[in-house]
Amino acid sequence: MRELVKAKAEGQEVAAAEGAPAATNVVDLMQALQDSIDQARGGREKATGPKSKQPEPARRKARKPAAKTAKEAGRPGRPRRRLPVPRPIPVTSAVRARGSCGS
């Protein structure tokens, strides 16, 4: 390839390369994919005939019953978290002097 580029750069005439050789082993990818799918399903089903197997609807797994709460089981549970009590804002003497404390 480099030789061709050098020859072209020097001004020599370069003959066109022959066309690509004819492919001898061409694989139809769509057919190969379809064959693979059919093989995984267990054989090819005819499109015109009735289907031999209908897929069963998916079933849900049974859930385990919920665990008992501590109160139901008769054992002490965690104490509830107490929310903080809001504290009143202290009124300073400067605020009282302005008279904006509401009293």
Score class of each variant (00 low, 15 high):
A73L: 09
C101P: 00
R98M: 12
K51G: 13
G74P: 02
G11K: 00
E3H: 04
R75L: 12
A66I: 08
D35V: 06
K71P: 03
P90H: 01
E13Q: 08
P21A: 14
V14H: 02
A16Y: 00
A23F: 09
G74H: 03
D28G: 01
D28I: 00
A7R: 12
K53T: 13
Q54K: 14
R59D: 08
K8H: 08
K46P: 11
A22R: 06
P86G: 03
A40M: 10
P79M: 02
A9I: 02
E18Y: 00
P84Q: 12
A70W: 08
A47E: 11
V5P: 00
E45L: 10
Q34P: 00
G19E: 13
G11P: 00
S52C: 04
A16L: 06
R78G: 12
R60C: 04
A62Q: 14
K68V: 07
T24Y: 01
K8Y: 05
G49A: 13
G19F: 01
V95E: 15
A16Q: 08
I37C: 03
S93P: 04
S36T: 13
A17P: 07
P84V: 07
R78C: 02
K53Q: 14
N25R: 06
V26H: 10
K68M: 15
S103P: 02
A70M: 10
K46H: 12
P84G: 05
R80Q: 14
R98P: 01
R81P: 02
P76E: 15
Q31T: 08
G77N: 04
L83A: 14
K8T: 03
N25D: 15
P88N: 09
A32C: 01
R81M: 07
P84L: 04
S100E: 15
A94G: 03
A67T: 13
A94K: 09
R44K: 15
S93L: 04
Q39D: 09
K53N: 11
A16T: 09
D28Y: 02
A94T: 08
A62E: 15
R78Y: 11
A32N: 06
A94R: 13
S93E: 15
A15R: 13
T48G: 09
R81H: 13
G49V: 11
S103Q: 07
V91H: 06
G102C: 07
P21M: 04
K71Y: 11
L4A: 06
Q39V: 01
G19I: 00
R44Q: 14
R2A: 08
E45K: 10
R2L: 09
K51S: 14
E13D: 10
A15P: 08
P88C: 05
E56D: 15
V27Y: 09
A23P: 04
Q39E: 12
A20L: 10
G43W: 02
D28T: 01
A15T: 10
R63V: 15
R96N: 06
K71H: 13
T92N: 04
I89G: 03
G77Y: 06
L29I: 07
A23N: 05
A16F: 02
E13A: 10
I89Y: 14
A97S: 11
A73K: 14
A32I: 01
G102W: 03
E13Y: 05
A97G: 06
R75Q: 10
M30R: 08
